[in-house]
Simulated assay, not measured.
Amino acid sequence: MTVRARIDHLVTSGTFALDGGTWDVDNNVWIVGDDEEAVVIDAAHDAEAILTALGGRRLRAILCTHAHNDHIDAAPALSEATGAPILLHPDDLPLWKQTHPDRMPDGELSDGERVSIADVSLEVLHTPGHAPGAVCLYAEALGTVFTGDTLFAGGPGATGRSFSDFPTIIDSLRERVLMLPGETVVRTGHGDGTTVGAEAPHLGEWVARGH
């Protein structure tokens, strides 16, 4: 059966700030939908660029894989421009408030919830470790999982800063992500993608490295 929904991708640039440090970063922004409607995964840095990429489609929701500032800084402006609700796992509210103290998300992303868009659904997988409320979004019909900063090509996301924990991210990857079908394409928050099958064999190496 042909799936109508597609994945569009753009890269936006800005600053990541946490624990008193700042770093220049390029972020992946993912748009999932068809010609009529879409959702945005991680509204990073540039609301205008994301609006342009939407091309007039109705934005149904802004989904946040986690609440580090570089993944959510453009979310309020994008929401204001489109009327779309911002959805975030509640465990990341302390991080959210560091960036947007006067504007709370509009709703929650709960483990096991399915977000429907066009003719596909995105299953919310709560994957704490990089952040307490980090989630991955699994689109089985599209053969892909959007991992935010939980999994990259080459290993797990960073756990050396506040609100993060290495054993927790390893448990999340082992139990929630690396058991997906090996051909599942991993679309990350930064940099190049990979597949579950390419990363799963290296879990033991990551544990041995301890980071």
Score class of each variant (00 low, 15 high):
F152P: 07
S116A: 14
D46V: 01
P90C: 05
G55I: 12
G160Y: 02
P167K: 04
A131Q: 00
R114K: 08
R209L: 00
L93H: 03
T82K: 04
I31K: 05
R103W: 04
L151N: 14
C64W: 09
A200P: 02
T22V: 09
V145I: 12
W96I: 01
D19Y: 06
G155Q: 12
P101D: 03
G33P: 10
E199H: 11
N69H: 14
P101H: 04
E199S: 10
I50G: 05
G197A: 12
P105L: 01
L54K: 05
V29I: 09
T15V: 15
A43G: 03
L122R: 06
A118N: 05
G33E: 11
G197W: 08
D70W: 15
G154D: 08
E113V: 00
A158Y: 02
D119Y: 10
G193E: 12
D73Q: 11
E48F: 02
R103Y: 05
I41W: 06
I169F: 08
T150A: 15
A131G: 02
A208R: 01
G193V: 06
A74W: 08
L88Q: 10
G157Q: 04
L63Y: 14
D34L: 05
C136H: 06
V145N: 14
A43Q: 03
L51W: 09
L54R: 06
A118Q: 06
L78H: 01
G107V: 01
E36H: 11
E175S: 11
S164P: 03
V120K: 08
M1L: 08
S79K: 01
I170A: 09
L122K: 05
M1S: 13
T99Y: 02
S110Y: 00
A47L: 07
V186T: 07
F16N: 07
L95Q: 05
S13H: 15
I86T: 11
T12K: 09
A67I: 10
G129M: 02
L125I: 07
R187Y: 11
V185R: 14
G148W: 13
W206Y: 00
D165A: 07
S121K: 10
